[in-house]
């Protein structure tokens, strides 16, 4: 075979591959052109920022404001009963709450659900920290704390000065949670 012919063959294959690549790239792009895809800002954006103010109803329907726990190291955990990974880490948080309560650590559960949906679960597991509930409001608060997609569980650590120190989407194990909290206690 003449070299020129071989070159032409290889070139054509490369062109096909390149176009194939472009097409694959196009087809992998989610939701072309709709302009509605939110880019998820780096949660680094909220790190080091002052926490937002908010209030939400607790399980008794009483409005509770975040200010109530000012001066403590606050760990906010967004969760729901329908979220298996959330349920798995709750015992971890209960244990840490017990261990560090006297050092000024305050866990705060925020359920992306209505109060009646979580009440039984909270009683059965004997959760030893307050649980606030809500739906739209909770999604907004989660977004303000860097969780733009409302994914659960989502954990935020706010230091005694009210500055966001740590965020994490997905469950935390006991080791990681303890060593993280010890940095800020």
């Amino acid at each position: 075979m003449k070299p020129a012919v071989a070159v032409a063959g290889v070139l054509s294959i490369m062109i096909v591959a390149a176009i194939g690549g472009f097409v694959v790239h196009q087809s992998l792009k989610p939701d072309l052109g709709s302009g509605t895809v939110r880019s998820n800002p780096d949660p680094g954006e909220v790190l080091g920022k002052r926490r937002p103010d908010f209030s939400l109803p607790d399980l008794e329907g009483e409005m509770r404001s975040l200010n109530e726990w000012d001066g403590k190291l606050i760990v906010i955990n967004f969760w729901a009963t329908w979220c298996p990974p959330c349920r798995e880490e709750i015992p971890v948080f209960m244990e840490l709450q017990e261990e560090f309560a006297d050092r000024g650590l305050q866990f705060l559960g925020i359920a992306l659900q209505e109060a009646e949906e979580v009440r039984d679960y909270v009683n059965e597991t004997g959760m030893n920290y307050p649980v606030l509930t809500g739906y739209r409001e909770v999604i907004k608060i989660a977004a303000a704390l860097g969780n733009y997609m409302g994914a659960l569980p989502y954990t935020v650590v706010i230091n005694r000065e009210g500055v966001i120190e740590f965020v994490k989407a997905g469950p935390l194990d006991l080791e990681t949670a303890r060593s993280t909290l010890l940095q800020y206690l």
Binding site: P30, V37, D42, P43, G44, G146, M149, A151, K168
Partner: peptide, 16 residues
């Protein structure tokens, strides 16, 4: 770019 980074490593996709 659509993944949470910050002080965590595992990748979480946007639900979309």
């Amino acid at each position: 770019s659509g993944v949470f980074s910050g002080n965590q490593t595992d990748e979480i996709l946007d639900p979309e």
